[in-house]
């Protein structure tokens, strides 16, 4: 595989009127890793994701995804979209289409020459691959529960066999069992499909369980990137409050039984 980073952001700046969300933000996401992005509410996690996938034009800075510069109007810009998949927070499924038809949308768009029968088969196995029951394929989004919507959204995100997967708070609103199952699914798909995953989350368990590295967003920048033990070694107060607060500690204890010593080298 290519050794160049999956995502490279340099000097990103986002401002809405007088409000500056990002300033001089740098971030590099390696190929094949699961990177978790954390930050307080309003630190622009979603704005960062929207900038990367080209939904939000940054006021300054350069974003490169899979070797392609985002925001330059060229033909290749269309192609890059078939190489990533995005799972929005609420699933963002098209409400007038069934789950399987939702998955087919991307296939139809990028591979119009594909035989409808093959397209149908692909849609069907993508749906089951995300852990939905067989019968869910023909259901409309309004007939699904929140957890099922997320899985259906994931199936749509995976429709084009992307190299890069964006997940916006995938476990928010799920019960602990559902959240753990979704984490497991993410990890499994990451391993089988060799995906690079960019994951925005507030779920400390998710961070401990599946993320290779964690990027911390604060003060309009990425203030630290690293494994959780590495982050714990830093002395930024927000990072400490975040991972060392009551919730952070219990998640940590669940991950590493016994007293937690700083600086484990293997994570």
């Amino acid at each position: 595989m290519n050794s160049e980073p999956a995502i490279r952001i340099t000097g990103l700046e986002n401002r809405f009127g007088a409000q500056v969300v990002h300033q001089g933000l740098d971030l590099e996401v390696r190929r094949g890793e699961i990177i978790g992005v954390v930050g307080g509410s309003g630190t622009g996690k979603s704005v960062l994701m929207r900038s990367i996938i080209g939904l939000q034009r940054p006021s300054a800075g350069r974003i490169e995804v899979l070797g392609q510069v985002i925001g330059e109007p060229c033909r290749a810009d269309i192609d890059i979209r078939s190489r990533w998949g995005v799972l929005f927070q609420g699933g963002a499924l098209f409400s007038t289409l069934t789950v399987a038809e939702n998955v087919e949308v991307g296939l139809k768009e990028f591979y119009p020459q594909m035989d409808p029968r093959l397209r149908r088969e692909i849609a069907r196995f993508k749906v089951t691959m995300t852990g939905l029951p067989d019968a869910a394929a023909a259901k409309y989004p309004s007939e699904l529960s929140g957890g099922m919507k997320k899985r259906a959204g994931l199936a749509r995100a995976l429709a084009l066999d992307p190299e890069l997967l964006f997940l916006d708070e995938p476990t928010a609103g799920l019960d602990p069992i559902g959240a753990a199952a979704f984490d497991h699914l993410t990890r499994e798909l990451h391993e089988t499909l060799g995906l690079t995953v960019f994951l925005i989350t507030h779920d400390l368990d998710t961070l401990h369980e599946i993320c290779d590295r964690v990027a911390v967003l604060a003060d309009k920048q990425v203030i630290a990137v690293g494994t959780i033990p590495e982050l714990l070694a830093s002395d930024h107060p927000w990072i400490h409050d975040y991972f060392d607060g009551p919730r952070g500690r219990s998640a940590l204890a669940a991950r590493y039984p016994g007293p937690v010593a700083g600086g484990q080298e293997h994570f």
Partner: peptide, 13 residues
């Protein structure tokens, strides 16, 4: 990974 995923359910209602 995929061979456990083959479904037979209809895609459209």
């Amino acid at each position: 990974a995929i061979k456990t995923c083959s479904g037979v359910a209809p895609v459209t209602p």
